[in-house]
Nucleic acid binder design. Structure first.
Length: 679
RNA sequence: GCGCCCGUAGCUCAGUUGGAUAGAGCAUCUGCCUUCUAAGCAGAGGGUCGCGUGUUCGAAUCACGCCGGGCGCGCCA
């Protein structure tokens, strides 16, 4: 609701300013900034636009503000506009009218509007299927899942894809571990893959394998290359074991993520990108468009590369005109070789790199490749879920239209891959799809790292240099990291102990379910409260905290409301109808400010969601949720709802509780958090 | 060396695109459970927004330069 009013106000201001000062301003449209004033006494929305106009009109800002305030006329839902300070325009909402809109249950007509919106793809998780998921992977999945929920809330049609690199080096290393180091047969691996915690087994094996492979480089390079080639081509025991490992690990990842309420629509597998010749098609497109070229000399001779220079289009124009392009003698430039940043797309042995495959995949997402996968239902999905996967065998009927071109694609990938992601987008651009390149959005985030102390707690011996550093990277190769399932287990144990203490009378199953919800709330909120750019230095103490700015705090506010409403319906059944006048009277003046601020905040979820999408920042919704819970707790302590003497006031309080509950539950749902009935 | 990100309270972080007196949580200290669940609330202390110079009515926010930290730059992904 907040966004509706500010939008209306902005439009009115633009129209009025254009009409009144249009001539003096010429074609310049002033930037109408609307902000929240620091105090509620100053209104709900304010604009400093008069300051900007003052320059052009050569008049005092306060004078201009007064003129605007006087001439603006009425705006629906806004009671009045006042001038404050040196020239601020402060708008005061009609509190009663706001309440009336916000308290009405939202109708279902928004559902029909959803169908009209364009399709958006969110790709997230995309963990190499060769080991257990760690907390860094969970940050990726939680960010992607939450952003997808936010997009859906804003009535977009969202398809969630999880890219499975089942033919990469990481899988190859584990295959080497099983076949060469442990001398297992494919059947032996298959049996092992059915055991619980297969992902944990691979976690250790992968660390061992890379360690061993690092010892004897020349020999292992060959072994690795051969294994990788066999896997890519789908030939022999290597490929067989690779398939077994990748599929089983994907199952593990799906189960882990399902614990956190994270699901997928499609598993897009790299093997199909290869086998269905997606790359071959993309390769032709890139060559035809001149996006890539065959290097004939230098160290990259024989490779297909994408020439790459970090410069803007204008700079390129200048270069073309001045003719500084084409200094081919590499000797003269030596280290500062401008080809140093050229990106290899196809290796000299003819094998395409990850970037190439990703370009093909990205082209497909936008419906530009002219090909499609075949699909089948993924077996062994977690209970209640239907997940489709690509296949190169016969497809299964009933798959959603995955080939429908996306209007926008969000790829949730950590910030270290920013450069490679740029290359992928550039690939689209140079193939002639600039619009798709613009809509190809890298939703980047900083890593989750460990404090040296945390790493020590996990039992890892740090090298002296690592111990001196502020943080330690998690590393699959080193086997260093906080495994997702371990952390969730730990959280569930901690919450269960607490729930048991508080509700010993409840059944065991109920206690476990409640503990689970709280654990998920704690973990998801912990990962979402940081903005994407912020490095998370993981610490068990913070992650296991249930107080303050945490998920359980937000859940607790809902639980309190439910308790009140439960007791309210038990004790008194009197129904009191609230008149708009009564509400307006309650909210009027300074006495009503606190209540009004709570209502205002409850009605500003749309604004938070809008800002979150605009900035691609799920943390905004987490912040909103916490603040709403905080505002409610404040209200809760100030007013005793059920013992309120005035029946009109009590009815209002109860209605307000209902409003806050609705909005909190919605906001929490966007974060993938469910509030329990009691906790 | 080049490129990207960051530097805000003791610690961990917000700060919605340049706005009014810089905010939370944790930690510390002081109060509040016979009243709707204390996973809570109220209050206190704690700041040269890394440093400097600019841009302008106005800068934590923008530009440039330093200082300090992280990441990326492989025929890995």
């Amino acid at each position: 609701m907040y966004i509706t009013l500010t939008k209306r106000l902005r439009e009115a201001l633009v129209a009025h300013i254009q009409a009144k000062y249009g001539e003096a301003l010429g074609s310049v449209v002033p930037n109408i900034v609307l902000e929240r004033p620091p105090k509620i006494e100053m209104g709900e929305a304010a604009s400093p636009v008069a300051f900007e106009l003052a320059k052009r009109l050569k008049k005092a800002p306060r004078m201009i503000a007064q003129e605007i305030a006087a001439g603006l006329g009425t705006v629906e839902g806004i009671a009045r506009v006042e001038v404050a300070g040196a020239g601020y325009l402060n708008a005061y909402f009609d509190r009663g009218a706001f309440w009336k809109v916000v308290i009405e249950p939202t109708d279902s007509k928004s559902q029909t509007a959803a169908a009209a919106k364009a399709k958006i793809i969110v790709e997230h998780t995309s963990i190499n299927p060769n080991k257990a998921a760690h907390i860094g992977h969970v940050r990726n999945a939680v960010l992607g899942d939450t952003f997808a929920r936010i997009l859906k809330f804003s009535r977009n049609r969202v398809q969630i894809q999880n890219y499975i690199d089942n033919t990469g080096v990481q899988v190859a290393d584990v295959v080497i571990g099983f076949l060469q180091m442990e001398k297992r047969s494919p059947i032996g691996v298959m049996q092992l893959a059915r055991e619980p915690k297969f992902d944990y087994y691979c976690w250790d094996l992968y660390a061992k394998a890379t360690q061993l492979l690092a010892h004897d480089k020349p020999k292992t390079e060959k072994l690795r290359a051969a294994t990788l080639k066999a896997i890519e081509e789908g030939q022999g025991e290597d490929a067989e074991v690779g398939q077994i490992v990748a599929d089983a690990i994907v199952d593990c990842h799906l189960r882990t993520m399902a614990r956190l309420g994270i699901g997928y629509d499609l598993l897009a597998r790299e093997s199909e990108i290869l086998h269905l010749k997606f790359w071959d098609t993309a390769f032709e497109m890139l060559k035809k468009a001149g996006a890539i070229e065959l290097a004939t000399s230098g160290k990259m001779a024989g490779c297909w590369i994408m020439p790459w220079k970090k410069e803007t289009a204008e700079e390129q124009d200048v270069k073309e005109k001045t003719g500084t392009e084409g200094t081919e003698d590499a000797e003269s430039t030596e280290k500062g070789d401008e080809h140093e940043q050229d990106k290899i797309i196809v290796r000299s042995n003819g094998v395409v790199t990850y970037v190439g495959k990703d370009i093909a995949y990205q082209l497909w997402k936008f419906g530009l490749l002219g090909k499609d996968f075949r699909y089948h239902k993924w077996p062994n999905t977690p209970a209640g879920e239907t997940i489709w996967a690509t296949t190169s065998e016969a497809g299964e009927a009933g798959a959603p239209n995955f080939a429908e071109p996306a209007n926008a694609v969000y790829n949730v990938i950590d910030t270290r891959q920013a450069y490679v992601q740029e290359v992928v987008a550039e690939g689209l651009r140079r193939t002639g799809y600039g619009a798709a390149a613009e809509k190809s959005i890298h939703l980047s985030y900083a890593m989750v790292v460990l404090t040296p102390r945390c790493a020590a707690d996990l039992g890892y011996e740090l090298s002296p240099e690592d111990a001196r550093r502020p943080f330690v990277d998690m590393s699959g190769r080193k086997g260093l990291g906080v495994k997702a399932d371990d952390l969730i287990d730990k959280l569930e144990a901690a919450t269960l102990a607490e729930v048991h203490e508080r509700h010993a009378d409840m059944g065991e199953r109920w206690q476990k379910e409640t503990a689970h919800k709280i654990a998920v709330g704690a973990l998801r909120f912990f990962l979402l409260k940081f903005t994407r750019n912020s490095l998370i230095a993981f610490d068990f103490k913070d992650a296991l905290s249930f107080e303050g700015e945490t998920g359980p705090y937000c859940q607790y506010a809902v639980v309190r409301i439910r308790g009140i409403r439960r007791k309210g319906t038990e004790t008194g059944g009197e129904t009191v109808t609230l008149s708009p006048e009564t509400v307006a009277a309650i909210l009027a003046g300074a006495d009503g400010n606190d209540l009004w601020e709570l209502i205002l905040h409850a009605g500003a979820l749309d604004y938070a969601v809008d800002a979150a999408i605009g900035a691609q920042e799920p943390a905004f919704v987490a912040k909103y949720t916490f603040q709403l819970a905080q505002a409610f707790n404040n209200f809760y302590h100030k007013h005793h709802i059920l013992s309120e003497e005035d029946s009109q006031k009590r009815a209002f309080f109860l209605a307000l509780c209902g409003l806050v509950e609705t909005q909190l539950v919605r906001a929490l749902d966007l974060l993938g958090i469910e509030a329990p009935e009691k906790m």
